[in-house]
Design a binder for these strands. Structure first.
Lengths: 360, 360
DNA sequence: GCCGCGACGGCAACGGGTTGCCATGTATTG
DNA sequence: CAATACATGGCAACCCGTTGCCGTCGCGGC
């Protein structure tokens, strides 16, 4: 028998329930937040009354005293980048398992927006996962002082981090290209503010040394298809036979740009991307790429955050490293053995003996 | 001179500021929320003290009395669907303009999850935008009674709605196919719980009548690439020359499935999708599709929600309709004039004289 | 000199739970 | 049977702002 006498716009509070159930408000509160603290029959009666009255505990009021909102923020750099979809899924699953709600914030690749959004949200969440943050290390450390923070895809001293095994991914890509006969690799750089961008390049330098493959870098370009197309133009000016792009979007842009200019992928140039986004399998040729365990990233970062919220110290030593794997598709092939076939601009224009000369 | 004596983990409150500034807490409160109500010099002094102490107003405490959290929820059906990225952007921009924060919720195509998430979040937000909700009309109406709600991509009586001009989009697609010589169109249906799915099919029926094009429907299939591939198998069993798919992912799946079976798109079959996702331009052949103004959808829905939160009645009459346009790429072509060319299964197997016979 | 008015600031009562501490009643133990 | 321990529920303070109402004060008008 629902209570139709009460004005329907007014929320039901513990006080209403207390009156109905003939107990004190504190008992009602405890019946929900600490059931062991109250007689089970009483608790049951209270629950029934609450049900009948349509009582819902007000999370804001609860948060005011407990300073726990049961919400965490997940900040991603760019929601139009499909990479984040799986990360979000993983984070959401982990959060839901821990009775937490995820609020998602899109930073739109902007340091400023990201800071503003985090500042606004910080006081209403119990913790924050920063996925590919564009903020400065010091800004992140500042936030980390005020709330538990886990950083994804970036390593920052004194802040818990989850990263993927970029060095191994790059290494695998380089080995793959080496086995195909390529002795030069051009790295097409993404945003300089991006931490993976830096480590990928450094890892390539290292892999190049070990595998005796020469490497160079061009860029930075925007980490989008457009950025890739612009990179393709520059690639034509300084030809290579193998390209490692900062991410899949750029790789796809590069392939499009090259084929528009009559360069065949993988016939003339092999292209490798990063991330294994869905579209990598859709384009023609299919994109060879380094796949990251996106779902696991989101999930691991969130689980770690939850333990920190629960009081664990948050290991700030070495970052947690997740494994990657190389997905070989059709955008990579054996180096064209006859470079002279009617493509004069690719002949004799090979970069000077030290292709890494223009590096930082 | 920052105050280093206070323990750093304790938040600064208006009471701290009040003591420092030698005024009462209410004056501090008013200095921020109703500056006109307090002497400008006093207000300035208070602001300086607050700044010095690092005071930040606690949105939860404020919300408790004002019952305004300055947050709205945006619920999307599936974050892995790129369609929503632009919608999110539009919504976020509109929300930010109105000093609101958007919390994004991914329903993962599940009625149950969606309800659970909305129920949990409802009391902490001032309003909700439901983009492609999978919940029942009655569930949505129930939420709409408790909080301002705007529904996107769906029309529900008594609830404010924003939709795209599906009839016109379908009509344009049908005209396009008709001009290319197609006299049959097969509609490949998406989820039955999806409102656009229903209206697209009905619109096609109508357009077929007027344009004298025969139409039929197969499905439903999952609105994903996999769903499209399964649809392709069924398409081979019941051949057509023109396909209108529920969305782009399915259309891409259909194209892949068909070409795997040796059917050429657009040579043998023309395929049209819906939504104009980014990948539509990446696949080969490029996908002809009906483009929706995604950004404008998110932005319009959110702006309308904000006016409702501000007290406007929320026009529940006719839904707001946004225009669409047909983007022609390479997946549609003139109907193959010589059906006999070495593809026997496509000859003589044309559906019976009434291809719409098996419709509901 | 008195009255009225507006500007300004303070008091106190919320809003809706949470929780430390105490009082009571019952069960257990010596 | 007294003494102690435990289970249970209530009281009241607290979390941090917001806001209706009232008192005070200075000023202009008559």
């Amino acid at each position: 028998m629902p209570d139709h006498t009460r004005p329907p716009d007014k929320r039901v509070t513990i006080y209403d329930v207390a009156v109905e159930a003939a107990v004190s408000p504190s008992t009602v509160s405890r019946a929900f937040s600490r059931p062991s603290r109250v007689n089970s029959e009483t608790a049951e009666r209270i629950r029934q009354v609450a049900e009948r009255l349509g009582y819902r505990t007000n999370p804001l009021a609860r948060a005011l005293t407990t300073s726990r909102t049961q919400m965490i923020a997940l900040v991603i750099a760019d929601i139009t980048n499909p990479v984040y979809a799986e990360i979000v899924r993983g984070a959401q699953e982990a959060a839901t398992d821990g009775e937490y709600t995820t609020v998602l914030i899109d930073a739109q690749e902007s340091d400023r927006r990201e800071r503003a959004a985090v500042e606004r949200t910080m006081s209403t969440v119990d913790g924050i996962v920063l996925a590919s943050s564009r903020m400065s290390d010091s800004a992140i450390r500042m936030f980390a002082k005020q709330r538990p923070v886990v950083v994804l895809n970036r390593a920052i001293a004194d802040v818990p981090c989850v990263v993927t095994d970029n060095p191994r991914g790059v290494r695998r890509a380089a080995e793959h290209l080496g086995e195909l006969g390529h002795d030069h690799i051009t790295y097409v750089a993404g945003p300089q503010a991006s931490w993976p961008n830096g480590i990928r390049w450094r890892s390539l330098l290292e892999a190049g040394m070990e595998l005796e493959i020469k490497v160079r870098q061009i860029g930075p370009f925007s980490p989008t298809m457009d950025g890739g197309e612009r990179a393709a133009q520059e690639l034509c000016a300084r030809p290579t036979t193998a390209v490692l792009a900062f991410n899949d979007q750029m790789a796809i842009g590069i392939i499009r740009g090259l084929s528009r200019m009559g360069v065949n992928v993988p016939g003339d140039v092999s292209v490798v991307g990063f991330d294994n986004i869905l579209a990598a399998d859709l384009v023609t040729p299919g994109l060879t790429t380094v796949a990251a365990p996106l779902y696991a990233e989101g999930s691991a970062a969130t689980r770690h955050l939850l333990t920190m919220i629960a009081g664990a110290p948050g290991h700030t030593g070495r970052p947690m490293v997740l494994p990657v794997r190389l997905v070989v598709r059709q955008s990579t092939a054996a180096r064209n053995p006859s470079p002279g076939r009617a493509r004069p601009q690719w002949v004799g224009q090979r970069p000077a003996s030290n292709p890494a000369a223009h590096l930082p």
